[in-house]
Computed example of a mutant assay.
Amino acid sequence: MEGTKLLRAIIETAIDGIITIDSKGKIESLNPSALKIFGYKEEELIGKNISVLMPEPDKSRHDGYLHRYQNTGEKNNRKGERSKRTEERWISVPLQAGCK
Rank of each mutant, 00 (worst) to 15 (best):
L35M: 11
Q70S: 07
D63E: 15
E81T: 07
G39E: 01
K100R: 07
K48N: 15
R85C: 14
K26M: 01
K24D: 12
D58L: 04
L35E: 10
L35S: 12
T72G: 04
G25L: 04
C99R: 12
A14E: 09
Q96P: 00
S23K: 13
R78D: 06
H62L: 14
Q70N: 08
E43K: 13
H62N: 06
K84L: 15
F38P: 06
K59P: 03
T4G: 11
S33K: 10
F38E: 05
Q70Y: 04
I50M: 11
I46A: 03
S83Y: 01
I15R: 08
I27W: 01
L66W: 08
R89G: 03
K84N: 08
E81V: 07
K5D: 06
P57Y: 02
E43H: 12
N49K: 03
I11Q: 10
S60E: 13
N49M: 04
R61I: 02
K41R: 15
E2S: 13
S60W: 04
A97G: 08
N49Y: 00
V93Q: 07
F38Y: 15
F38I: 07
L35F: 10
G17F: 09
N71W: 00
R89I: 10
T72F: 05
H62R: 04
T4M: 09
F38R: 07
S51C: 12
A14S: 15
L53I: 15
I19E: 02
I37M: 12
A14L: 10
T4P: 00
A97L: 14
D58N: 06
G3C: 13
E43L: 04
D16M: 14
Q96F: 10
T13A: 11
Y65P: 00
Y40F: 13
K36M: 11
G25Y: 01
D16W: 06
R8H: 08
P57E: 04
A9H: 06
E81S: 03
T72D: 03
E12P: 01
N76I: 13
H62F: 14
N71Q: 12
W90D: 11
G17I: 13
I10R: 08
I50G: 00
D16R: 12
D22E: 12
